[in-house]
Design a protein around this nucleic acid. Structure first.
Ligand SMILES: [Mn+2]
Ligand SMILES: [Mn+2]
Ligand SMILES: [Mn+2]
Ligand SMILES: [Mn+2]
Lengths: 218, 218
DNA sequence: TTATAAAATTAGGTTTGCCTAATTTTATAA
DNA sequence: TTATAAAATTAGGCAAACCTAATTTTATAA
C-alpha cells in the first residue's frame, strides 16, 4: 500500500498527465503542483520509481506505469465520490468540499469506494463537473472546451470548472453560476479577450479571459 | 492542532480513564493499549505534557487536562458518528466499522462532526452501544453492568459490548446477538462461571464467563 | 531487609517526508 | 559559441514517531 504522501504524488502526476497541453511532467512541475521543494520531489521520484509506480527519463520526464495509473485513478475515484457526499449529504458548499476530500481520499478499506458509490446512487460527475472513475478504472472523458473558446453570440451550458480553488468557486457562487447554468457570450473585447456574458439570460456582466478559460462547457 | 498520533494517544488515555477499575494510567498501560513500546510512550508523554494536554506524575500516572479531555472527547465523538454512518448508510457489518472509523476520526474540518451528526439524525449511541458525545462534550453514561453480573433466571437486554474486537463481534454475529437482543440466564456453572443462556427465547447455549463480562446490559 | 522482578527511562538509531544551500546539468538567448 | 538563466540534483539536516538495548527506579515477595 502507498502512503498518504505517495498517493498525493501519484494523484498530482496523474492530473498533470491529463493536461491537454501535453507538456512533459518535470520535477519542477510536480513541485509546483504540490507546493513542495524540487529537492523533495527528486526524493519521491526515486521512491516511486523503486516501487514501479512511475518511470522517469530526464528527457521525457515522469510517466505513470500501469500500476501507478491504476492506483492514481482509485484515489481520484474516492476523492470525487467523497466530494459528492460532502455536497449532497452534508450540505457543504462546493468551494468547501475539495479540502476535506483531499483527506478522505486516503482512507483505505475494502469496498469503501464501492459502497460509497452505491450509497450516492452511482453519480457520473463530481460537483465540479469532473467524471468519477468507475470501480474498473474507466472514466468518461473530462470536458475540455472552455468558455473562452466559445463564439460570440453562442450560448453554452456550464459543464465543469477547470480551476477548483475556493477563490474561483466563491466568485462563481457570487455570480450565481453553477454546473448547468447557461451562459451566453454577448461580446469579446479585442484588447484583452475579456468576455461580456449573460448568465441564465440575466443582465450583461464582464469577466476576464482567465475566467473564461476556467469555465468548461458542453 | 494535534497530529494523528497525538489524537490516538489522547483517545487511549481517555478510554483508560473511563475504566471502572480506576487504576492509575501508567506508561505501560498506554503502551499496551496502543501496541507501542513503552519507550515511545515516554516520548509522547513528554510531548503531550509540553502541549498541556496531559499531566504526568510518576506516582499518580497520566491525567488529561481540561483541554486534553475536550480534545479526546471530540475524537471519540467523530469516531462514533462515523461508525453509525458506516453501519447505517454504507451497510458495513458491526465488526468492520471500528477500523475504518479509526481513520475517519482524525479528519478535521469546521463543522464536520456536527453536519454528520445532523445527517445521521442525532444518534444517541454508536453501533456498539457506546454513547455519542454531543457537540458540547456532554455524553450519556456508558453502560457498565455486564451479563456476568446478572442473576440466574433474569432476562436482560443487550445494551452494549465492552470488547469491540472483530473476533468478539463475529462471535456475537454467529450467535445472532445484537444491541437490543434479549438474553435470559438459565444457569451459571459453579466451576468456571460459564453461563447457560437463552438468546431471544431460543434454545440453551453455553458461553464463557469472559463472554458474559463483555456483554453490557441495561 | 534484601533479592528479584517489573516498570520506567535513557541513549542511540531508523524511516518518512520534508527542508536549505551548494553544485551540476541543461536550455536559451546574445 | 559562449554567457546566463533555469532546472535538476546532491549533500546534509531536521522533526515526527517509532524502535531496541541498556540502565535506573520502583514494587513485591521471600
Ligand atoms: Mn490528498
Ligand atoms: Mn472535484
Ligand atoms: Mn485513530
Ligand atoms: Mn464503537
Amino acid at each position: 500500500m502507498n502512503t498518504f504522501s505517495e498517493e498525493n504524488y501519484l494523484k498530482a502526476i496523474f492530473r498533470l498527465s491529463q493536461m491537454p497541453d501535453n507538456k512533459k511532467i518535470s520535477t519542477s512541475a510536480i513541485a509546483e503542483a504540490l507546493g513542495n521543494n524540487p529537492a523533495s520531489v527528486v526524493d519521491m521520484i526515486r521512491k516511486l520509481t523503486d516501487k514501479q509506480l512511475i518511470e522517469y527519463d530526464k528527457k521525457k520526464g515522469v510517466k505513470l506505469t500501469t500500476q501507478g495509473q491504476k492506483d492514481a485513478i482509485q484515489i481520484v475515484r474516492k476523492h470525487r465520490l467523497w466530494e459528492v457526499f460532502l455536497l449532497e449529504k452534508l450540505e457543504y458548499r462546493w468551494d468547501e468540499i475539495h479540502d476535506i476530500a483531499e483527506e478522505l481520499e486516503h482512507i483505505k478499506y475494502h469496498d469503501l469506494a464501492d459502497r460509497l458509490e452505491k450509497f450516492l446512487g452511482f453519480p457520473e460527475y463530481d460537483p465540479h463537473g469532473d467524471p468519477i472513475p468507475k470501480a474498473n478504472g474507466k472514466m468518461a472523458k473530462s470536458f475540455s472546451a472552455s468558455l473562452a473558446d466559445g463564439k460570440v453570440g453562442g450560448s453554452y451550458r456550464v459543464a465543469a470548472v477547470r480551476d477548483t480553488s475556493s477563490e474561483f468557486l466563491k466568485y462563481l457562487h457570487k455570480l450565481e453560476i453553477n454546473i448547468g447554468t447557461q451562459i451566453k457570450i454577448i461580446e469579446q473585447i479585442a484588447f484583452d479577450h475579456s468576455l461580456i456574458i449573460s448568465i441564465d439570460n440575466g443582465e450583461a456582466t464582464t469577466v476576464s479571459s482567465k475566467f473564461g478559460e476556467n469555465i468548461l462547457i458542453s
